[in-house]
């Protein structure tokens, strides 16, 4: 079995026994997440991607279906905290997830909750802060930092728990372009260098392009999934659901529609320029 296995999950915020036609935020989703992978989940607000994220660390439990994390059923109450130790969740608003007034004290919050020895906490805090490149700011007050920096502190706070997987629920939605780049670079580093499984919920397709795998959700269901190349070459499908595609992909797709000889849809500016160079001759 994969590290995280989501099996036919349905979830409604309505009381399903009381309500006649409950609205399912997640409506029959089955997904597998491999250890060490970098998956992006994209879709509109209200497509169920955030609800799905909260299922991955037992913050929400499915109405029907199962979620297994490292073999443990998330609905098993005895396993809740084991699961949250393995799967960390970072939320959208960086201001609302920092609990302490000093950066290093905030990062220490997780391991303190787990009852880790003080000397070990110190080590974990230092290495987590170094991993996100915020070690020099360990004595700062979080409210004086930029959005990107705050979000990196939030990531360090989860890292200090030493999880195997980090789920991020639109961590860049409130950041400016440079903050977004900081967070993305940090995530890529954690995934490639430390082998941490990353599941990134986002609505920026330029971030999804950087993942190994992209899952597209719509109305509580999985619309399509695959490598970024496979997903973003389905320009028609994405446009139909009013999702973004990279401009490079859109241009190539529409040129192809006019009869240009194009086999593979490019995602990055570079690939697109090379492709167009070939086509133009």
């Amino acid at each position: 079995m994969n590290f995280i296995s989501v099996q036919n999950v349905r979830f409604s915020y309505d009381d399903i026994e009381e309500t006649k036609n409950p609205v399912y935020a997640v409506d029959g989703v089955s997904l597998e997440f491999e250890k060490g992978g970098f998956t992006a989940v994209i879709g509109h607000n209200g497509c169920g991607k955030s609800t799905l994220a909260k299922h991955l660390n037992a913050m929400l439990l499915p109405d029907s279906g199962k979620v297994y994390v490292d073999g443990d059923d998330t609905s098993d109450e005895n396993k809740t905290f084991d699961i949250r130790e393995k799967v960390g969740l970072v939320l959208q608003n960086p201001d609302n997830q920092l609990v302490a007034s000093i950066v290093e004290e905030d990062v220490a919050f997780g391991p303190e909750n787990l009852g880790v020895e003080p000397a070990e906490i110190r080590k974990r805090v230092d290495s987590a802060l170094k991993a996100v490149g915020m070690y020099d700011y360990r004595m700062h007050a979080p409210y004086k930092l930029s959005g990107g920096q705050k979000q990196r502190i939030a990531i360090a706070g989860v890292l200090a728990i030493e999880p195997q997987c980090i789920v991020l629920d639109e961590p860049t939605a409130m950041l400016d372009p440079s903050g977004r780049a900081e967070v993305m670079n940090t995530l890529i580093k954690l995934n490639r260098e430390m082998g941490i499984t990353v599941i990134l919920i986002t609505h920026f397709m330029e971030e999804a392009v950087l993942a190994d795998r992209v899952v597209v959700m719509d109305s509580g269901k999985v619309l399509t999934q695959g490598t970024p190349d496979e997903v973003f070459s389905q320009v028609e499908l994405l446009k139909k659901h009013r999702l973004d595609v990279p401009q490079a992909a859109e241009l190539a797709f529409r040129l192809k529609g006019r009869g240009a000889k194009i086999d593979k849809i490019p995602l990055t500016a570079e690939d697109c320029v090379n492709l167009l160079g070939e086509v133009l001759g």
């Binding site: 990279p246 401009q247 490079a248 241009l251 240009a260 500016a269 697109c272 320029v273 167009l276 133009l280």
Partner: peptide, 30 residues
């Protein structure tokens, strides 16, 4: 991104005007 792509093509010597801003414009030019 589209402006960057068209700029690079221009630098490669293709006959492309400066400052293309939308996919529609790029599509027509190409």
């Amino acid at each position: 991104q589209i402006t960057r792509i068209m700029q690079s093509l221009k630098q490669r010597g293709y006959d492309i005007p400066d400052g293309i801003l939308t996919v529609d414009e790029a599509l027509e030019t190409l």
